[in-house]
Design a protein around this nucleic acid. Structure first.
Lengths: 156, 156
DNA sequence: CTAACTGCAAACCTTTTGCATTGAC
DNA sequence: GTCAATGCAAAAGGTTTGCAGTTAG
């Protein structure tokens, strides 16, 4: 979702791992690659269903799980600021973190070498071999720090 | 759950915020403070119900939400290694991270100054004011790196 | 005394699963 | 042709909610 992504990377990765490339999977992968915001399973389903009304919710869930299992997408929950659902993003080549504003719901994704270093640090300090990293922080974004606190309930 | 915790801290904090200190809340807080492993809502309920059979699941959920809202407990999902549920821990004074082994399910919690620095770094680099930090990594713990990969399904 | 909290039961929402059928390789 | 993947419908979690009765402050 954040940095630009090389088009067919995911599909090729799947193919090379012997996962069958069905029309439905292609569609889901395509949607995730083009997404400009974080999509939960239902959102993926709605978008997919719009393009191919025959696709079933269960297929979307199964596909997301497949992609996750193969490390091609990461699952987030954005600190549950928007509820219990899970969000998905194609795993980027450079690690980034998620800052979720509890006031306006905005999600920022600063990327950088520093976060990359976390993995190495854990490995050398504990021996643990990290494969998936999830760093999320809830708090107040710059804009909302200026804004007077708005009454809870109404959110953009 | 990780570092030792000052007994009445949470209760006092609640009291000072004008949240009514009912027997049920005291019980839940007490259980969380004494916990030696990560508890999900159902586990909290079972333990609570054992001590006070009249307590209701809904009350446990409501209490956990109250505590979370006031920043007294943190919610984790431990990378969903054990399913979709959420785990709760009393917010420790010193930030720690969670390393979840995808092979054996073990959770490690290295604490330290370094992780504390993440908050400051985000703040100074982006202006975002972090309140809750969640850093979880899925991967393989030292023990399981030596062990031959065991057939999936059977877990300790 | 009164607003806040609880127990209860039902609803809700998200995700998973068994089965017959379809389709990728 | 074969085995994996899909659509479908039903179930399984996990969590929330409206309401009437209870209780902390």
């Amino acid at each position: 979702m954040p940095v630009a992504r090389t088009g067919a990377r995911v599909s090729e990765e799947l193919r090379s791992r012997g996962v069958r490339l069905t029309a439905q999977r292609r569609l889901v992968v395509d949607l995730l690659e083009r997404a400009t915001r974080h999509l939960d399973a239902e959102a993926v389903y709605r978008l997919a269903h719009h393009k191919d009304p025959s696709i079933h919710r269960a297929t979307v869930y199964r596909t997301l799980n497949t992609l996750k299992k193969h490390g091609l997408v990461d699952e987030l929950d954005l600190m549950h600021v928007r509820g219990t659902r899970h969000y998905y993003e194609v795993r980027p080549s450079v690690l980034h973190i998620h800052l979720i504003c509890t006031a306006c719901g905005k999600v920022q994704e600063p990327a950088g070498r520093f976060w990359e270093g976390l993995k190495r640090r854990v490995r050398s300090q504990t021996g643990f071999r990290p494969e998936v990293v999830r760093l999320e922080m809830g708090g107040v974004c710059v804009d909302c720090q200026d804004r007077p606190p708005r009454p809870p309930g109404v959110r953009p």
